[in-house]
Amino acid sequence: MQILLVDDEKELVSTLAERLGYRGIDAHWAVTPNDAVAMLSEQSYDIAVLDVQMPEMNGFELKERMEAISPELKFIFMTGHGSEECYHEGCSQTGEAFYLVKPVEIDSLIEKLNQVMHNGGKP
């Protein structure tokens, strides 16, 4: 499973990627949406885990950009932002089960990754 983690908090994504690596998941990371788009142009990924609130563009806009490059890519949102508007937007795009609020336990994230990977995004 190839994962791309995108969040403007570098210490969060780099640590999370390392921990996923210890569990046999090949996770790469980017701290800007533009870096993420560039990485996706170079290599294919199975799932992108996106922060919602980021400089340059938000996670929903980034999802659209990434889908244009890689239509098969699946998504999970992981956010510290709890607004109703974001929640409904995120849930409408990925389903409620895949709109995660930080901090996220790694076992819970892996369970979601497996669900997305094997059940086509259905919880």
């Binding site: 908090e9 210490e11 969060l12 999370l16 921990r19 510290g80 901090p103 996220v104």
Partner: peptide, 9 residues
């Protein structure tokens, strides 16, 4: 939340 998430990781 971001600080907590980083500490959590």
């Amino acid at each position: 939340k971001n600080c907590l998430a980083i500490m959590n990781e």
